[in-house]
Design a protein around this nucleic acid. Sequence first.
DNA 1: TGACAGTATGTCGTATCTGACATAGTCTCG
DNA 2: CGAGACTATGTCAGATACGACATACTGTCA
Lengths: 105, 105
Amino acid sequence: MDKTKQSRLEAAGWRVGDTADFLELTSEEAAFIELKLALADYLRDMRVQHGWTQTHVARTLGSSQSRVAKMESADASVTVDLLVKSLLTLGASRKQVGQVIARAA
Amino acid sequence: MDKTKQSRLEAAGWRVGDTADFLELTSEEAAFIELKLALADYLRDMRVQHGWTQTHVARTLGSSQSRVAKMESADASVTVDLLVKSLLTLGASRKQVGQVIARAA
DNA sequence: TGACAGTATGTCGTATCTGACATAGTCTCG
DNA sequence: CGAGACTATGTCAGATACGACATACTGTCA
């Protein structure tokens, strides 16, 4: 398994041990997590491209800097709901969101 | 505004009064709700096409018939998280989910 | 009509998520 | 180095969503 992806999954709050342990994730679970990571990445890209700070984005969303940080790292305490709502609020279109999700892993 | 859509939004737990009231929804909120409705519709289509009952689907998901009914009606107590997880569990691909979301209203 | 399968709606205790705060880490300047 | 801007991580009380159950509605078939 890809090292970078592994640490990202761990960072997201999912324990990753040896290969057998990892494979305890069903394919749906894995797909769901990757989907979440894709949205998180897109949120960060959007923010950085606009030259915004996490604090600025937090204000726009009516949230806090720490939650924005957790969103961008796809923390386990962040839902797809929150990510999608945030992206839409920051100006992404429904179509863009769908494309991010549909994009192959 | 389209009558059918209006009743669907009401059913989803959103108050819809006159036009002014309706426009209190920001465009992001509206986009989010439509996105949810699209996923809900897709879940129902998937179930019906397979000839499954809500109870059968509930068992597959480890949930209950009532929650499946609420999912299909995009009830306000249902999150996009739950809809996406459910679709993936029922066999939809991440790509399909994305396409459903990206599809223009 | 009544019985039955399926779906919808309302409620509730528990589990999970959220914004907020504190604090720690990481850069980049001077 | 030290200060300041930005980001990451941990924690928590209050808010929200979850599965479950009860019950109501809707069809269909005899």
